[in-house]
Design a protein around this nucleic acid. Structure first.
Lengths: 146, 146
DNA sequence: CCAATATAAATCGCACACGATTTAATCGCA
DNA sequence: TGCGATTAAATCGTGTGCGATTTATATTGG
């Protein structure tokens, strides 16, 4: 034999994660488009619903994104009237983000999204939790080398 | 109680998939940058290594992408001298993509990538296969509604 | 045979992601 | 106190993804 065969896509975990992410993205696009949100904007809104007034960095820690991605995203949410931005008076370097009244009102419209997604996913709760745990562990390992 | 609380990110399978995808992407960026490839370009090369002369559509079926994404990607690979494009003589609508000599030579350099990734992932083969199967099933369900 | 339809790529606009750099504010410590 | 190092956002350039449209070619039904 000359060299090893290159890996088949079906055998690659990275590709399973990648392509499932694409599939999720397309489903969410259908669900969120009418509300004028993208998927990353949606999870940013959810993170702010959990804890308002987070800094860009704190949001980034939750979403695994940095300011180069988050700043424009947040500005688009601000332009849509869903969040407001303010400098932290104690440290003027820090920008804090709050949900506006309009942003908070949107949360009601978002309530039906998770059940739509669960319906489309069509897996048992046990499978779901097992995969969540496995992916979280995997994510931690992958990020360890950064 | 007024309304249901919005979902927490940690409880959302979509977010586990999304954020693990980001982590994979960053790892691959480190591994592939020196070879001048992006992750989607890498999987396109692997797909062509499996079967040369595929049409844009056939590649799209494998990668779960469409011509709007693949055409520019393939053109960049062509500009890098890794693939060549030709019209199918039997059906001039179809563009077929082949690995060039240079593209085939690159496969040797790519051999070490999977083991680097496996090292970083740090999970057992059983876990890996379980997650692959779970994700593939999930992807199929999510795509059923399209 | 040929106009209506269908199909394959390509094109366009927008919103991520991210490496690299820049700007502004704060910190550390001599 | 002051100035070099650090930190937080923002900015910039490149490459995806994808909905919508366009262009070119092929098919098909009358």
């Amino acid at each position: 034999m000359e060299t090893n065969d290159p890996a088949r896509l079906d055998d690659m975990l990275c590709f399973a994660v990648y392509s499932t992410g694409l599939a999720f993205n397309r489903l969410y696009k259908r669900l969120l488009d009418q509300l004028g949100l993208t998927y990353p904007q949606y999870i940013a809104i959810l993170a702010l619903a959990q804890k308002d007034g987070q800094s860009v960095s704190e949001l980034g820690d939750q979403l695994f994104l940095e300011s180069n991605t988050l700043t424009p995203l947040i500005k688009r949410l601000e332009a849509a009237g869903l969040v407001s931005r303010r400098r932290d008076s104690a440290d003027e370097r820090v920008v804090r983000v709050d949900l506006t009244e309009r942003g908070r009102a949107l949360l009601a419209d978002l309530q039906c999204v998770p059940e739509e997604v669960a319906k489309a996913a069509g897996i048992t709760l046990d499978q779901l939790h097992a995969m969540q745990d496995g992916l979280a562990a995997l994510r931690t390992n992958l990020r360890a080398g950064e």
